[in-house]
Design a protein around this nucleic acid. Structure first.
Length: 541
RNA sequence: GCUCCUGUGGUGUAGUCCGGCUAAGCAUACUGCCCUCUCAAGGCAGUGAUCUCGGGUUCAAAUCCCGACGGGAGCACCA
C-alpha cells in the first residue's frame, strides 16, 4: 500500500514517517467493513480500479545504445576467414547490423585476415554466401590486410614514442615472464635499437625470432595488458596478398587501428574478448586516436550442437558427419539446408537480447520462430512411412482434387487414384476390423479385413466426426524418397550414434514437381525441406 | 592458481545503472477449450519464479553493500 502511494506520488517520499501512520489508520478502518461492502463501494464509486491492468508494452528489438547519435552510428562485423560461418557468426553480424539500422547508420564487413596460416579463400567465400543468405547488407566490405601500410606506420609511431619495443626473447620465457609479471631485458632497449630491429623484422629475422610488443603494464591484473604482441613474423603465403608481407599485426593491434580508422562508433563482439577492451583503449590512447564504444554479448550455442572447429573437424574426418552442411550442424549452410529461414534466425537472435549470461539456447525456440515463417508457404503433401496396402472397393471416382493448403489459397493438385492405396504403418496398427477411417481428401472407408492387405468398402457421404483422419498415397504413382531426420549431435558430450535417422518413405508424385529447396509439410508428420528429387530433410514438427 | 564476466519459472529473456505505481512482463515448452477433412497454423484460457544462497542498509530490495556457492571466459608470436 505504502509502495503504491509512493510510486504514484513521489512527492510524498520525503514525508514517509508521517504518512505511514495515516495509512495504517485508514487501512484498519477499511478492514472493519465487510468484504462485500468494500466490493460494492468500489464498484459504485471507483470502477476504474476494477479494470484490468494495461499490458506493459514490450520494447522491440535491441536495447538502446549509449552515446549514440541518430545517423552517426557505425558498426562492424569482423569475421576471420578461417572456417565456415555458423549461428555464432550470425549473432555477431545481426547485432551489429541491427544497431546500424536502428540508428540509420552504417555497418562494415571486415574480413579479419591477419593470420596467413589460417585464412583461406574457401572460408572467405563461404562467409560471404552465409551473410548474403541471412540478408545482411553492408555499406562497406573490406579486408584488414588492405591496411598493412597503416599498421606499419602506427607501429613505427609507437616504437618512436617508446611505447612499443622489439622483443627477441624465446616464446617460453615471454610467457613465463608474463606469469611472473616481470619485464624482460628487451624492454629496456633504446628507441634507436628498437628501430633497427623493427626494420630487421621485415628481412633478416626469422619467424619467431622477434616480435613487437606494446609497453603495457607487466604488473597489471589483466594479463592481456602485460606487454602484448603487436606484430609477429609469418612467412606463410596469404590467400589474397600472397608473399607481399611477412610482418603481420596481431588481432588486438589491427582491431584497435581498424575500428578507429574505419570510424566505428560501436563495436560489439562476444564475451571472450572482454579483457581486450582495456588493451584496445590503451593502444588507441597512446596513439592519440579516437576510441569506439565497445560492447559484449554471450556466445550462442545450441544444446548438443557444437560450434568449435576442434570438435567438428574430427567428426568430418571420421565420416561421422558428412560435411559442414550436414543438417545436424549449427553452420549457416546446414541450417539453411535443413529448412531454417534466415528471417527466423534473425528474430530468434534478437529475442535472445544482449545478455552476457551464458546462453545455451534450446533448438525448439528457433523452430518455433521458423514454423511461423514456413507454415504459410508450405504445400501440404501426403507421405506414409512403413507403407501398408489398402484395397478399396466401390470407389466411385478415378481422381480427386486436394487443396495444397488448408487456409491459404495455394491451388489444388489432382491425384489420380485407383483401388490400391498405401497408408502409414503406424495408422494401420490402430485400425480395427469393421471400423471406419477417413482418408483425407478422399472419403470414408469401412474396413472389412485387416490381414496382410487391408480391405475396405468406400462409404459415400461418410461422416467425418470422431473418425481417425489419415493420409494416404496411391500404390501406382507414389514416389519413394529418402527422408533425413536430424537429431541432437551430442548427448552429454558424447557423439549420438543415432543423430541422423534415415527413412525411406512414400509420397505423392507432386513431390517431383516441386523446386529443390521448397518447404513442404507432410501432413500429420511435420515440416520438411526438399533437398533433391530423391531426398528430403526433416525441419521440425 | 590468478584475473574478469555471469546467476530471474522446464527453457530463453525483460526489469537491475537512477530501490517504490510489479510478490515480477514477454517468448517458448506444457495442459485444456475454440477453429479445423493434419498431431500444423490461428484464437482463448491455465499451470509454472518469495528473482542461486546467507547476512546488511532502508519505511521499502530482483534492484544498493558484504560474503558464500554455481556457471563461463582469459592468462597464445589465434582471432
Amino acid at each position: 500500500m505504502l509502495s503504491k502511494i509512493l510510486g504514484t506520488k513521489p512527492e510524498f517520499r520525503t514525508k514517509v514517517k508521517e504518512i505511514i501512520g495515516d495509512i495504517s489508520e485508514i487501512v484498519s478502518s477499511i478492514n472493519q467493513i465487510s468484504f462485500d461492502e468494500q466490493k460494492k463501494e468500489i464498484e459504485e464509486n471507483y470502477p476504474d480500479i476494477l479494470k484490468p491492468k494495461e499490458k506493459i508494452i514490450e520494447r522491440e528489438g535491441l536495447p538502446p545504445l549509449e552515446n549514440a547519435i541518430q545517423g552517426n552510428v557505425v558498426t562492424r562485423f569482423p569475421p576471420e576467414p578461417n572456417g565456415y560461418p555458423h549461428i555464432g557468426h550470425a549473432k555477431a553480424a545481426i547485432i551489429n547490423s541491427e544497431y546500424a539500422k536502428m540508428y540509420g547508420g552504417k555497418c562494415i564487413l571486415r574480413m579479419d585476415d591477419t593470420n596467413p596460416e589460417a585464412e583461406r579463400m574457401e572460408y572467405h567465400a563461404a562467409i560471404k554466401v552465409g551473410l548474403d543468405w541471412l540478408g545482411i547488407d553492408f555499406d562497406l566490405i573490406k579486408n584488414t590486410s588492405d591496411d598493412m601500410e597503416l599498421f606499419y606506420e602506427k607501429g613505427t609511431e609507437l616504437i618512436n614514442a617508446g611505447k612499443a619495443y622489439v622483443c627477441t626473447c624465446k616464446r617460453d620465457d615471454i610467457s613465463k615472464n608474463r606469469r611472473e609479471r616481470k619485464e624482460c631485458k628487451c624492454s629496456f632497449r633504446d628507441i634507436t635499437q628498437n628501430n633497427q630491429d623493427w626494420k630487421k623484422m621485415f628481412e633478416k629475422f626469422k619467424p619467431g625470432e622477434a616480435i613487437v610488443r606494446f609497453r603495457g603494464d607487466m604488473k597489471s591484473d589483466n594479463a592481456v595488458m602485460r606487454d602484448p604482441v603487436l606484430f609477429r613474423i609469418i612467412d606463410e603465403k596469404h590467400y589474397t596478398k600472397g608473399n607481399k608481407y611477412r610482418v603481420w599485426p596481431s588481432y588486438d593491434f589491427s582491431v584497435a587501428i581498424e575500428d578507429s580508422n574505419d570510424g566505428i562508433t560501436h563495436a560489439f563482439r562476444s564475451k571472450e574478448f572482454e579483457l581486450r577492451e582495456d588493451l584496445i583503449n590503451a593502444i588507441l590512447d597512446s596513439l592519440g586516436l579516437r576510441k569506439p564504444c565497445q560492447g559484449f554479448f554471450s556466445r550462442l550455442e545450441f544444446k548438443g550442437m557444437p560450434i568449435s572447429k576442434r570438435v567438428l573437424k574430427p567428426l568430418i574426418e571420421e565420416g561421422k558427419v558428412s560435411w559442414y552442411d550436414d543438417p545436424r550442424l549449427p553452420t549457416l549452410e546446414a541450417l539453411r539446408r535443413r529448412g531454417i529461414k534466415a528471417e527466423a534466425i534473425k528474430k530468434f537472435i534478437l529475442s535472445l537480447g544482449l545478455t552476457k549470461a551464458n546462453t545455451l539456447a534450446p533448438f525448439d525456440a528457433l523452430e518455433s520462430f521458423n514454423r511461423k515463417f514456413v507454415d504459410a508457404n508450405s504445400i501440404r503433401l501426403f507421405m506414409v512411412k512403413n507403407p501398408k496396402k489398402l484395397r478399396i472397393t466401390g470407389l466411385p471416382f478415378s481422381f480427386v482434387d486436394i487443396p495444397n493448403h488448408p487456409i491459404k489459397d495455394m491451388g489444388k493438385r489432382r491425384v489420380e487414384i485407383d483401388e490400391n492405396v498405401l497408408i502409414d504403418g503406424e495408422d494401420a496398427k490402430n485400425i480395427q476390423n469393421g471400423s471406419q477411417i477417413r482418408l483425407l481428401g478422399l472419403g470414408n472407408v469401412r474396413i472389412t479385413s485387416v490381414n496382410e492387405v487391408l480391405e475396405g468398402d468406400f462409404v459415400k457421404n461418410g461422416d467425418s466426426e470422431n473418425i481417425s483422419k489419415i493420409q494416404w498415397v496411391t500404390q501406382k504413382n507414389s514416389c519413394e524418397i529418402k527422408l533425413l531426420i536430424p537429431n541432437q549431435l551430442f548427448i552429454d558430450d558424447k557423439f549420438n550414434e543415432d543423430s541422423l535417422e534415415e527413412l525411406v518413405v512414400n509420397t505423392e508424385p507432386q513431390y517431383l514437381k516441386l523446386k529443390e529447396g521448397d518447404e513442404i509439410q507432410f501432413v500429420r508428420f511435420g515440416y520438411c525441406r526438399k533437398d533433391s528429387q530423391t531426398q528430403a530433410i526433416f525441419t521440425h514438427k
